[in-house]
């Protein structure tokens, strides 16, 4: 046997060894506490959109409200605010200029502003679910200097339970809840916005 083959046999043994060790100890049967994944009694808000905005501002994001027709204007305003430089977006209403189509994701490091649309927002913590379904390189979400996410007001849910219920049948290759711009408090617990990921997050909430 070659060294690699020996290693592979070793691994198979480890797998069986671990599984056998687990099976050798029978634990009391405990049923799963959630029926159909539902937790009853979780907090609900009278004004989910208002709560979402409050949560978003507390994690350092900016929120813009608009109707369908003016989304693109807001996108352009934000791009202008962050000066000249590479911008790209996919899914901001009516636009798709994500031209990072080469094989290497490293090109995303030039991005100054990146925009895309989120599938849902969560009122309790301002998290927005974004998947890489339409995005050329998933790293764009974090590697860009400034991130813009558009969501429909109607897609905002109360809490994480409602959010995962909606995502139940979604199998995104990569999906992420993003809540605010990147941050760290690793130096003496001082909050610094703009760690490795985006320095700012603008959320465009589309009403109607």
């Amino acid at each position: 046997m070659t060294r690699m083959e020996v290693a592979v046999v070793g691994r198979t043994t480890s797998r069986d060894l671990i599984l056998n060790k687990i099976r050798a100890v029978e634990l009391p049967d405990v049923s799963h506490p959630l029926v159909d994944g539902v937790l009853t009694g979780a907090i609900e808000y009278a004004d989910t959109v208002g709560t979402f905005v409050g949560s978003a501002e507390s994690v350092g994001a900016r929120v813009h409200f608009c109707d369908t027709d003016s989304v693109v204007d807001i996108w352009h305003d934000i791009c202008e605010e962050f000066g000249s430089g590479k911008t790209a977006n996919v899914g901001i209403r009516g636009l798709n200029d994500d031209d990072l189509t080469d094989d290497s994701p490293h090109s995303a490091s030039e991005l100054v502003v990146y925009g895309t649309s989120g599938i849902l927002g969560v009122a309790e913590n301002a998290a927005i679910w974004v998947s890489d379904r339409a995005i050329n390189h998933r790293v764009s979400l974090c590697l860009t200097q400034h991130l813009v996410l558009q969501i429909d007001a109607k897609s905002i849910v109360n809490n994480m339970h409602d959010a995962y219920a909606k995502l139940q049948d979604v199998r995104d290759d990569y999906g992420v809840f993003i809540s605010g711009p990147s941050k760290t408090a690793d130096i003496e617990q001082s909050l610094v916005i703009g760690a490795h990921g985006a320095r700012t997050l603008d959320i465009i909430v589309v009403e109607g």
């Binding site: 994690v59 913590n125 998290a127 974090c142 990569y174 992420v176 809540s179 990921g197």
Partner: peptide, 8 residues
Amino acid sequence: SITTYTSH
């Protein structure tokens, strides 16, 4: 209330 990135 949640980490900034909860990545799946």
